[in-house]
Write a protein that binds this DNA or RNA. Structure first.
Lengths: 153, 153
DNA sequence: GTATTTGCAAAGTTTTTGCACGTGG
DNA sequence: CCACGTGCAAAAACTTTGCAAATAC
C-alpha cells in the first residue's frame, strides 16, 4: 500500500514512468469513489481527450498492482475500482437499489479474527463486497425506494 | 428457496415446463458444486449432446430466479452457480490458489446480526464470497502451494 | 392444438493484444 | 537516446437476441 509515499514515488519505486494518463486515471478514481473502467474513461474524457480506453484498462491494472487503487466486485461482471487514499473499507451493496455503503474495516475485525483463528484464512477486506437488502428496501413493500427496477444479482 | 418442494413442483408452480435441458442443467450444477456457465455446459455435454450453450445461459438464469440454484461471484467476471439443495453457505476463496472453502451460514451469524442491528442491512449469505489468503498460501513463502501462478483478483 | 422452449446463427458488449509511433527520464 | 508507454485497430472472449422448428402438456 502507498502508506506515506506519494503516488509519484510509488510509480518510480516500481520502475514506472509518470505519465499524464496515469495521473488522470488516478485522479478520476479518487473523484468517483467507486468506478468501473467505463466510468473512469468517461470521467477522464471530461478533462482531456488525450486518453484511450485500452490505456484506461492497462493503467487501472497497473495502479491496482501497485496498491494505489483497489478493486472489488460490485457490478455484475465488471470490476469496480476505488481509491486507497482513505481508510481501508469494505462495501455493503443493496441488490434492489444498488446503493453502496462503505464501512470501515474495524467493523469486520471480530469476524475477520474468527476466520483467521479457525481456518487460517486471512480476509482481504478491501476486496470484500457484501450483497443484501438495505433498510429502505426492506421497508418498502413493493419497490418504492428503488433506483433500479430490477432486483437482480 | 425450494424448501420442501421438488424442483419439478417449483417449475410447475412458476408456470414453467419440465424439459430435459432444465433437468440436465440442474443436475450438472448439483454435481459440480460450483460452476460457471461454461463449466455447466461442458458437464451437461458429457451426458448428452442435446443442449446448446445459449440454453444453458437461459436455464441458469431461470433456475436462479426460482431459487433452485444461486450464484455468487467467485470468478473474475463470470457468475458461479451452486446448488441450494444443501444447507445455505457462503464461500472463502483464496486469491492465490483459487481454492474455495464453503462455510455454513451459521459461521457468519453473529456478524450478520451486527449488520442488521446497526445498519438495518440484511446480508444475502448465499451470494457472499470472501476473498483472501488461505493458510497454505500464507505459509508458502514464494508460491509453492499455488495451483494458479498468478495471484490476481 | 398451442404456447412455451430450444437450437442455431448472428449481433452485441466488454476486454485484450500487436505493433508502430510518441515520450519521459 | 532508448526503453517504456500510448493510440489505434483488430481480435478475442463472453453473453444476448431473433426467429423458425420442436415439444411439453
Amino acid at each position: 500500500m502507498a502508506d506515506s509515499e506519494t503516488w509519484q514515488e510509488t510509480l518510480r519505486a516500481g520502475g514506472y514512468r509518470l505519465t499524464p494518463q496515469r495521473e488522470l486515471v488516478l485522479t478520476a478514481v479518487d473523484t468517483l469513489g467507486h468506478a468501473t473502467p467505463d466510468q473512469v474513461y468517461a470521467e477522464v474524457r471530461r478533462h482531456s481527450t488525450a486518453i484511450n480506453l485500452s490505456t484506461v484498462y492497462r493503467t487501472l491494472e497497473l495502479l491496482d498492482e501497485l496498491g494505489l487503487i483497489r478493486h472489488a466486485h460490485i457490478e455484475e461482471r465488471t470490476p469496480t475500482y476505488h481509491s486507497t487514499a482513505g481508510h481501508e473499507h469494505f462495501h455493503l451493496v443493496c441488490h434492489h437499489c444498488r446503493n453502496v455503503i462503505s464501512l470501515s474495516s474495524e467493523r469486520i475485525e471480530r469476524f475477520r479474527r474468527e476466520l483467521v483463528d479457525e481456518h487460517g484464512f486471512q480476509v482481504d477486506v478491501g476486496h470484500l463486497t457484501i450483497f443484501g437488502t438495505c433498510a429502505a428496501c426492506a421497508a418498502a413493500p413493493s419497490g418504492e425506494s428503488r433506483d433500479d427496477p430490477d432486483g437482480s444479482d
